[in-house]
Design a binder for these strands. Sequence first.
DNA 1: CTGAAAGCGCTTACAG
DNA 2: CTGAAAGCGCTTACAG
Lengths: 346, 346
Amino acid sequence: MKKKVTLKQIARELDVSISTVSKSLRNSPEISEDTRQKVQAFAKLYNYKPNNIALSLKNRKTKTIAIIIPEIVHHFFATVISGIEQVANENGYNVIVCLSNESFDKEVINMEMLANGSIDGFILSLSKETQFKADFHHITEVINQGMPVVMFDRVTNEILCDKVIIDDKTAAYDAVQSLINQGRKKIALVTTVDYVSVGKLRTDGYTKALLDNDIPFDENLIVKIEDIDNSEKQISDLLSGGEIDAVFAVNELFAVISVKIATKLGLNIPTDLSVVAFTDGIISRYSSPTITTVSQNGIKMGQKAAKMLIDRIESESEEEEHYKTEVIETHLIERETTISQKNATL
Amino acid sequence: MKKKVTLKQIARELDVSISTVSKSLRNSPEISEDTRQKVQAFAKLYNYKPNNIALSLKNRKTKTIAIIIPEIVHHFFATVISGIEQVANENGYNVIVCLSNESFDKEVINMEMLANGSIDGFILSLSKETQFKADFHHITEVINQGMPVVMFDRVTNEILCDKVIIDDKTAAYDAVQSLINQGRKKIALVTTVDYVSVGKLRTDGYTKALLDNDIPFDENLIVKIEDIDNSEKQISDLLSGGEIDAVFAVNELFAVISVKIATKLGLNIPTDLSVVAFTDGIISRYSSPTITTVSQNGIKMGQKAAKMLIDRIESESEEEEHYKTEVIETHLIERETTISQKNATL
DNA sequence: CTGAAAGCGCTTACAG
DNA sequence: CTGAAAGCGCTTACAG
């Protein structure tokens, strides 16, 4: 078991100073060709690699970025991480992943712990509880310390920083419009509770689409799901009414559950009932029938977020004010839960 | 924008030495009650938090562990991360995630980069390419430096270290046996290429089950899939033969594709064709029909791996030889692709 | 061309 | 009870 070798040890072995070793390895022109080669040969032999922690302390930057997300067992977030990781790696950064598990406290603890020198910047998506409490002091604090933060997907207007989002409202509007174009009139909405920012925006888009098409808004066609485990009954009640001819769901889980229940109720999809959902993931692709969804390119969101963060980290200027919000485009991926028009977008 | 405050600054403000500040904050009995309180009050006011990097350098441990996995956009790996993260957090560790993307080079680069002081230990699952090349020098090297390594799922016998696995062979055997118990005789196998360790083991289990039940082994009933994108034709050819009455797939993706193709071919599931697959994930639960699978508890594997790693990190003794291999139990989750016996295990 | 010194932010054995 | 010194592993401005 040969332990990692340090500059000090090399210096001692070669009977030169630590400075000389350091400079030799960094190819400083100060050092004679002779000693440089000797040191480099020795270092190579012992497989010397500089200690990252020491470098971090010296340089006051760690070349690592932290991602704080509510959940990882969730295809969308996994794709975002994947995108971040790719760009981070290309730029020599490592990635620390922390899960808030939708808990405010855990989000705060994680951020505070990492803000103390461990990382160069944050990429984060708010936990449900944080959105519910609308308490963002931990984020403000970190930003005030001069640490760059990029938020994505679940963001808030109360924090000024770089952001990467999709246009949830417009995308929802377009999705609902596509149902209307197919002649659907009784369009139900299966959504989250209001404090989830994206759920709210998607609900707004739904409402606006109805309005613009002179379709009466009906409270009774809306189900707000707080807890996924109890959702079946709510959706079942909704669909049993019999009136409904389309469902717009704010995520694919709500959609697939709706599809299952509808099928059980003897409804034919898409003849009796069309279904469109947010966020194209694994489930939509493999459920039967496959589900028409709004794509939300997590890879691209992650890449963009990482790029923005690294730019911010590496830019000398501290011009705090030029925060940007990037909007990633979405599109509808038509599958079997809407009338098969065979003009699938992808 | 108030920057992070350091001991040095506090010392200067309070006109005491850095040592005194440090000791005061750590409640050293050496310090007088008076100064202790004064320093603590001041530190609190300025929200002092020690710099993690400095502590890491001083203590020669970073309280972070690295996970190296082939892919994150894969439900199983996401659950493992989730399990690791939970245990890590409970023990005050952070988690760095690196993706090899099934590439040998990226696996090596990531490990070498992190091994230089950034982390206290590794949890890893081999990339396909690494398994194919059977080149594990990067892992041996890290272990030789005294850094603990825990491997999970995709492991190798060529490396001595702690491991967390399931008994792939037995689980496969049991799954196939369950098909045989239902009276299935022509059981096809949809598997990976042989160099993927778990694919190989599952294939072995399949073969043994047939043997033990005096069912002739038939080369033609086996499809080895190298590239998922080209799998449809291979599986289609397999199922078109018409002879087959069951499919055993080594992962749920292969299973759901088989189910789709079978349905398209007009086969009734499970009457004409039973399907059992490895690794219970999102797809199996939401496909229609839902798929009978061997559960592989990723959360538990992750928790166990993290526990083993942290124990190893924190144990003083360097008894390298007592490496353990933990086997996580699996069980069959019966769903709609096997004859509905209503005795679902879960 | 080489090396001693200072410093990144901290801790702790030791002196006073 | 307080503080100077050494040290974790490195880099770099400065002296010689």
